[in-house]
């Protein structure tokens, strides 16, 4: 069996390089994915992202990457969204007007209700059983966002404490989203990513 390849959707997202570095540090081969044929070689697909939802979806659409991402996910292969990449997994976002998302996990992205910005380190509270996330319960991760993924309860794996809890991790089978940045969450992020890659490359 050939070694797994971790693909990162390359649509100009800011944190793709940092996520890729962590993946390499964990000993996995990775490649940037920016055209249809690239998807064929990928075992796990990461959707990174920082910035605004509409411009990210616009970039994915312009680069004809939406359909290949959906086909990849529908084939049962794992898709992992990081920060804005997690929000892109939702049905839609209200950021700067209503924008359709990838629709891989039901839910809507809305402005944070209890604060304007959620920037810094916060403690993960796992609310559902998850082989990847549960061992990270109580650990601190780094967040930087002002919109949140509001998903039905059955898809919420982790939240962080706030006046109104903020969804931190969503999962639907092999579709996994993290609102925090594992690539800059020091040892907590390193361990969670190690478990995630072990499980998803073993699938």
């Amino acid at each position: 069996m050939s070694a797994p390849i971790i693909g990162l959707v390359d649509y100009g997202a800011g944190n793709a390089a940092s996520v890729r570095r962590l993946i390499s540090k964990l000993g996995y081969r990775s490649r940037l994915v920016n055209k249809h044929e690239d998807f064929e070689f990928v075992t796990v697909l990461f959707v990174p992202g920082v910035g605004a939802f509409p411009s990210a979806m616009e970039a994915l659409t312009k680069m004809n990457l939406v359909k290949p991402i959906l086909d990849f996910a529908n084939s049962g292969k794992p898709v992992v969204g990081v920060c804005l990449g997690m929000q892109l997994l939702a049905d839609s976002s209200e950021e700067m007007g209503l924008t359709k998302g990838l629709g891989l996990i039901p839910g809507e992205v809305k402005a944070l209700s209890s604060m304007e910005w959620h920037i810094g380190w916060n403690t993960l509270d796992c609310v559902g059983e998850c082989s990847i996330a549960s061992k990270s319960d109580g650990q601190n991760f780094y967040y930087n966002h002002s919109y949140e993924f509001q998903a039905p309860k059955e898809y919420i794996v982790g939240v962080v404490e706030a006046e109104n809890p903020i969804v931190s991790i969503v999962r639907k089978h092999n579709i996994f989203g993290m609102q925090f940045h594992p690539e800059i969450s020091q040892i907590s992020g390193f361990k969670l990513m190690r478990r995630l890659l072990e499980e998803f490359t073993d699938a």
């Binding site: 920082v50 930087n144 966002h145 002002s146």
Partner: peptide, 8 residues
Amino acid sequence: AKRLGGQA
């Protein structure tokens, strides 16, 4: 800010 988002 419009390109990167105010959070950045």
